[in-house]
Simulated assay, not measured.
Amino acid sequence: MMRISLINSNVLGILAAVGAAVSFSIIDVTFKFLSQGYPLYQMVFIRSVVALSLLFVIIIPLEGGYKILRTQNIRLHLMRSLAVLFANISFFSGLAVLPLAEAIAISFATPLIVTLLSVLFLKERVGPWRWGAVMVGFSGILVIVKPGLDAFQPYALLPFFGSCGYATLHILTRRAGGSDKAATLSFYPTFAFLVISALAGVVFGHGGWATGTPVLDVVLKPWAWPEGIEWAIFAVAGVSGAIGGYLVGQAYRMCEAGLVAPFEYVAMPLAVVWGVLVFAEWPEPSVWLGSALIIGAGLVSLWRETRTPGPPPRPRPRSSG
């Protein structure tokens, strides 16, 4: 019975990770579409309003009611919020000055960093199969984007710093997942997004800080009111943010971080799909090969997990608030 329960838990966690990857890929598409006309803080603010509304009206009541927002790990959630804020600012600033494919390729260092940090800080055992899955998945990313020397210019450090921030978020999520529900894990970073983006809007919304430098004006350009269909696009980003935040919290609280990490590579083949459907960018043969490597790595990791006995160690969080 324990064996069946473990397999079901891991499979559900992996499915949650895939669902989160789908949700976050939708956010990437919407933000890419909107970024030419709107500052990052505005996109984050509107997304956070929609996401929090969905959390309060649907997700939190289904998970046990508003009492689940009470936590003994306030300090841990503050650290998670700071990590994801740092990650978003770093990644989207780099995206403004780097080619999209190169920025995404660098950002996919996240699963490698997660796997390493899970060994160092969570004391998880990551065997050769999981290391192999991560490395094969990453090789698929390189096959797809074929990064050249330009990817290693100084601005390339920005999406790498973003990767470090996201990896830290996932490790802290795993740390908090022993006692807090997924809706709780999703609420605190989303609320932090709302507060920080609102403050940024007050400070930068008038546009007086704009410099004409793309990497800075991602944050500094003025607030602009959406029109027509753009409101719907903002709403889609908000709903995707709520669902993705919930699912990624569920994934990292149910499974070892080293198991979940390779499934984040699913976002890359999804980017291919969005490129065809939204931007009419038909992929080259190398993209199909890379996508096969990414998907194959995830399937091998899943197959191996269903054959490995023993429940995953779940670190219990210390009280910090």
Rank of each mutant, 00 (worst) to 15 (best):
M2E: 15
I4G: 10
I7Y: 09
S9V: 04
N10C: 11
L15G: 13
A17Q: 15
A20W: 04
F24T: 03
I27K: 02
D28F: 12
D28P: 07
V29M: 11
F31H: 06
F33G: 06
L34A: 09
Q36K: 14
Y38S: 11
S53N: 01
S53E: 02
V57S: 07
G64L: 03
I68A: 02
Q72C: 00
N73Y: 07
R75C: 03
R80A: 10
S81H: 06
V84M: 13
L85M: 12
F86Y: 08
F86I: 08
N88P: 00
G94N: 09
L98Q: 02
L98F: 06
L100A: 14
E102Q: 13
E102I: 07
S107K: 02
F108Y: 13
A109I: 09
P111N: 02
L112Q: 09
R125L: 01
R125S: 05
V126D: 00
W131T: 01
A133M: 01
V134K: 00
I144A: 02
K146D: 00
L149P: 00
L149I: 04
D150M: 05
P154Q: 03
A156L: 10
L157W: 10
P159F: 01
R174S: 10
G178K: 04
D180P: 05
K181A: 14
F187I: 02
Y188I: 04
F193S: 07
L194I: 06
A200Y: 10
A200I: 09
G205F: 04
H206R: 11
W209E: 04
V218L: 13
W223Y: 15
W225Q: 14
G228I: 10
I229F: 15
E230I: 08
A235M: 09
V236T: 08
G241A: 13
G244M: 04
G245Y: 12
Q250M: 11
Q250L: 13
C255T: 15
C255V: 13
E256Q: 14
G258Q: 03
V260A: 15
P262Y: 05
F263R: 04
E264T: 12
V266S: 13
M268C: 11
L270E: 06
W282V: 13
W288E: 03
L289C: 00
L289R: 00
S291Y: 05
L293K: 05
L293M: 14
A297M: 09
L299W: 12
L299V: 15
V300Y: 08
L302I: 12
L302C: 10
W303Y: 11
W303I: 08
P312E: 14
P313I: 12
R314A: 11
P315V: 14
S320A: 08
